[in-house]
Amino acid sequence: MSHLRYTIKRLLQAIPVLIGITSITFLLINAMPGSPVEVMLGPTASEELIAAAEERYGFNQPIHVRYVKYILAALGGDLGRSIHYGVPVTTKILERLPVTLLLLASSFAFALSVAIPLGIVSARRRNQPVDHGSRVVSLIGVSTPNFWIGLLLIIVFGYHLQVLPSNGLVMPLTPISEVEGATSRLDVLVQTVRSLIMPTIALGTLQMAAVSRIERSSMLEVLGRDYINLARAFGVKESVITRKHAFRNAQLPVVTIIGLQLTSALGGAVLTETVFNINGMGRLIIQAVRTQDYALIMGTTLFFGVMFVIGTLLTDLTYAYLDPRVTYEGED
């Protein structure tokens, strides 16, 4: 009830943010020197040719008309055509999106499944060897750029040991015939996992390091609270205190950090995809900028913006689920 209301409220609040993102992107792109048509037709094109093309793509119209048209089309799922690829931008995004999502999901799964237990154990055994070890790991993780980790992994496991593929990402639903040496769906899945390992570590290490630090300090903070002592005073087991009484409270700051990491991971994905030659959203945006493919730049930027909004939204909703005070304050 109150959760549902809160969710709807937050969803509605996301709309102005999205409008803001599209407007800014649109204005920025139009502020770039040269028209997209000139880029498309090259420096030798005649005036008439350019004028004809501008008319065909609607570039001769005033900017606010184009903006409204773009928004209306975008609402209908049409983000224009990519000049470079010659296909609709949405088609291109839908083709690349699953790759990036898979990469993000797997690196977050890796980061959280390592970071949360590590953080909790460090908090419970503060200033013992486990804690010192995890501090060193986090410090290295936070301060090492992900493309460098990627390159290092490629050199060791891809080149010297030759145990993992360092090029491309095999999607789990790729037709069997297209995957080298695969004779069954299982073979494809094995390839997927193998090709995911290194990019996952490269992209997820930063998240892992950041989250484990927050988890530790947050857990320490909560374990010192009066209500934890009260639970102890009433005979609750330490393991239950950690798992139940402290855990949920301690996740609040962690959720915020994870939300922020989600957006920074998008940036990281651009580099990781480049290092491992993975054709995802990250490489798409780079190609779009390189080829000055306006509709594609606009589409991919919009997509990253939407991802950002979804990230914040998920953070807020998780927060509301974990902490009853969040929805309550909204009702005052």
Partner: peptide
């Protein structure tokens, strides 16, 4: 603890777990 000797804490605002 709890069974034979129970306790009442000083600060009612801090002694209850806010998420349960």
């Amino acid at each position: 603890r709890g069974r034979e000797i129970a306790t009442i804490f000083q600060d009612p605002m801090e002694s209850l777990n806010p998420v349960f």
